[in-house]
Design a protein around this nucleic acid. Structure first.
Length: 467
RNA sequence: GUGGCUGUAGCUCAGUAGGUAGAGCACCUGGUUGUGGUCCAGGGGGUCGCGGGUUCGAGUCCCGUCAGCCACCCCA
């Protein structure tokens, strides 16, 4: 093959794109640490039985097999039982159990790593992608206020990305207790089926959801209509509206009613806090259900405003039974940002761009191969003061050396002293530096000259489409 | 994993009824003999995604495969 073909679903960015991704990663890490989360990294593989605890279909997991065993143990190989992790929550639960004795609870951690899923790729959906998770896990009891805090951490992270052109986000919140309590109050027992049906509302519409509720969850026409009423509720003042709906449909009875009240109290507290700490970002949406069945309380989904077609870029929720060693359970709450999904859209839509793809702020021109060492000395002096610098690849005509820098977006070209530039050059050193954007060329001293701060390193900046 | 659309030069695309491949931009060289971006002239570059088949002959038809996009599924 003359040129290798890319692998489907395994995205690779060009250097300019990597600058953008790196800025996102740096910002997330800084925000997470600002909120006191400790960073960890877990191994890429987990035992298959661990990965499958979540109830995923095994086809999504990449199974590891040693090459030597491949032919000899055909059929037996997969029982070796190692697979690449497909999220960071399950490995984290395992990590907590394994290190429970050495961790301090509530344990706050962030984790930014690649994960792998055997899904069919499309735009924003990959087989290998980066997730950035924050979770708080407690030993025994996890207070509700963490379910308030975690989405606000993410809101903070997205706010910190706004100045490079990342659009505003909307974090949609729901509480499983509300939906479950409402459903049970109505007399619907198969809550999982109810959740799955309701979650499809945006995609298939109310009529299809009603059909699903009747077919999958055994709902009557009245029960389905009541669930659809609930799913249509969204906004900031949802508690009173849900309560009224429950009264009207007679759903506020028995254990279901108690669960509903508990859920509404939690959801209300979250929305109150969000209204003051991140106004306009967090809003309730009673149809958010999340497919994953281990969530027990708050659930979150996040959309980029104006890019709702991309799907959720940051999701999560509260879980109570993910980690347990038999005597102690470790309930937690967390969210996960789909970094690759986010970055892929930032790049493809031109929302964020890099000022340049190479770190170099300066290209030092080479007058002749005989004097290359003089240029290297200039570069060394600049690097010693933290200025990324490279030396021109060849002692070509200066026009070509300038063009070399220009193609790469390097803003400055440095000219060491030469006999021909003696006139007009710096009296003490003879060095000159040219800003190739403006064409301005001035005498300069390698020991003291510094580029403007905004030119020192490549930066992520709003792109043409960011407005 | 299922189904649909697409795949020609680095990029965007043309290619007519199957007859040995084109344009613009980009790139390289020179005009400008050591200071780019304009202009002018010239030049290089394609196993037509890959593999197989039909045919005297396939970029053009058929099958497979890979990749990209879309829908489903699922989810970041």
């Amino acid at each position: 093959m003359a040129r290798p073909t890319p692998l489907s679903g395994f995205p690779e960015w060009l250097p300019e794109g990597r600058v953008v991704e790196q800025h996102v990663l740096d910002t997330l890490r800084r925000t997470f640490e600002l909120h006191g989360f400790a960073g960890i990294e877990t191994r890429a593989v987990e035992p298959l039985d661990q990965l499958l605890r979540k109830g995923e279909t095994s086809k999504e997991i990449y199974v590891l097999r040693r090459l030597q065993e491949q032919e000899a143990d055909e059929g037996r190989g997969e029982q070796a039982g190692l697979g690449l992790h497909f999220d960071l929550t399950v490995p984290f639960a395992r990590y907590v159990l394994e290190n429970a004795g050495k961790l301090h609870f509530p344990f706050r951690r962030y984790q930014i790593q690649k994960v792998w899923r055997g899904e069919r790729p499309q735009e924003g959906r990959f087989r290998e992608f980066v997730q950035a998770d924050v979770d708080v896990v407690a030993a025994g009891e996890l207070p509700y206020h963490y379910e308030v805090e975690l989405p606000l951490v993410m809101a903070d992270a997205f706010a910190a990305l706004a100045d490079v052109g990342v659009p505003p986000v909307r974090i949609l919140v729901n509480n499983r207790k509300v939906v479950e309590g409402f459903a049970r109050g109505l007399g619907l027992a198969d809550v999982d089926a109810v959740l799955r049906a309701v979650d499809k509302l945006d995609k298939v519409g109310p009529d299809a959801v009603a059909d699903l509720l009747r077919a999958e969850a055994g709902a009557s026409a009245e029960q389905a209509a009541a669930m659809l009423d609930l799913a249509a509720v969204r906004g900031d003042d949802v508690v009173a509206r849900v309560r009224a709906l429950a009264e009207r449909h007679g759903a506020r009875t028995g254990a279901g009613g108690d669960l509903l009240d508990a859920g509404l109290a939690e959801l209300g507290a979250l929305l109150d806090a969000a209204a003051t700490r991140a106004p306009g970002v967090i809003t309730a949406d009673l149809k958010i259900a999340r497919g994953l069945d281990y969530y027990t309380g708050s659930v979150y989904e996040t959309v980029l405003v104006g890019h709702e077609d991309l799907g959720s870029i940051c999701s999560g929720g509260r879980y109570d039974a993910l980690a347990s060693d038999g005597t102690t359970t470790y309930p937690g709450v967390g969210l996960s940002i789909g970094v690759s999904r986010l970055v892929s859209r930032l790049l493809s839509a031109g929302l964020v761009t890099a000022t340049r793809g190479v770190p170099s702020a300066v290209v030092v021109a080479v007058t002749s191969e005989e004097t290359r060492q003089e240029s290297e000395a200039v570069a060394a002096a600049l690097r010693a003061r933290g200025i990324p610098t490279e030396v021109a690849p060849a002692a070509a005509k200066f026009g070509k050396q300038i063009r070399y820098a220009d193609r790469r977006g390097v803003p400055f070209v440095w000219f060491p002293p030469t006999a021909r530039t003696a006139e007009g050059a710096d009296a003490a050193t003879g060095h000159e530096v040219k800003d190739i954007r403006s064409g301005e060329q001035v005498p300069a001293d390698p020991a003291t000259w510094t580029p403007p701060a905004e030119d020192l390193l490549p930066r992520a900046v709003p792109g043409p489409a960011a407005g």
